[in-house]
């Protein structure tokens, strides 16, 4: 018997998180249901004129993606904190930087990736031009990774609090703004036929930066939360 390598341990944690998620399908379904409901409400509020909806669609879809991510990020570390697994994770001989990435990866797979896969349906509901759908999916794929990375910082800082939901929004929403701006700009660009590449590249750069730095902040946040 030997200690597993760091990558092996990360894979194991990823598998554990995904198994837990699959056994609680409600938690995967909730954000998607939220997304569907809000998308369905917009035509009722704005009026069913297809042109108008198509105008607003990039912004609407991105705002909902952001909010549905905010809804779920609160729970990333919560159950592990409550049952003591988090203490064990912090004491483990494995680098916390990588293990935290495994948690974020699992969160992104069950929220962001799924959303990016089914967003064409929502795009059709809001009459987004078909030419922009690929860009929408791509921008969501990249952007939600950034949202997960940032959301987990808030989750780590507030996991020790009984009701951290409101606080996490206050902490994290400002950091979400650049993603929203560039994400919706990429889709708008695709709608009018201008290249979306530069926007996606900026989001990609932000994702790289966040992958490098967010786990450090998350690890520190978790240590503080468990210490308190």
């Amino acid at each position: 018997m030997s200690a597993p390598g760091s990558l092996q341990f990360c894979r194991r944690l990823l598998r554990r998180q995904l198994t837990l998620a699959v056994r609680r399908p409600v938690e995967i379904g909730n954000p998607l249901l939220f997304f569907t409901m809000v998308v369905a409400l917009f035509p009722l509020g704005l009026g069913p004129a297809p042109d108008k909806l198509a105008d607003f669609a990039p912004g609407i879809l991105w705002i909902i993606a952001l909010l549905s991510n905010l809804l779920t990020s609160d729970a990333v570390f919560r159950s592990d904190f409550e049952d003591g697994s988090l203490e064990q994770l912090l004491l483990s001989p494995q680098p916390l930087y990588l293990t935290v990435l495994a948690y974020i990866g699992a969160h992104w797979l069950i929220t962001g990736l799924l959303l990016a896969l089914i967003c064409p349906v929502f795009a059709l509901m809001l009459n987004l031009p078909a030419s922009a759908i690929a860009t929408l999916a791509l921008s969501l794929l990249l952007g939600t990774a950034l949202l997960s990375l940032l959301g987990c910082i808030g989750a780590a800082l507030t996991v020790g609090l009984k009701r951290g939901g409101m606080l996490i929004s206050l902490l994290i929403l400002p950091l979400y703004m650049p993603v929203l701006i560039f994400g919706s700009a990429a889709v708008k660009g695709a709608v009018v036929g201008s290249p979306a590449g530069p926007y996606l590249a900026i989001i990609g750069a932000m994702v790289c930066l966040a992958i490098a730095l967010a786990p450090l902040a998350i690890a520190a946040g978790l240590r503080i939360s468990v210490d308190a």
Binding site: A3, D80, S85, L89, S92, Q94
Partner: peptide, 27 residues
């Protein structure tokens, strides 16, 4: 270290709990 909290996930079986334990101590 074994603390007050059992660190056992309700949605996993005992076997999975031990095999995928967050302490990452052994395989």
């Amino acid at each position: 270290y074994l603390g007050h909290l059992p660190g056992v996930k309700a949605m996993l079986s005992p076997r999975e709990n031990l095999a995928w334990h967050a302490s990452g101590e052994g395989t």
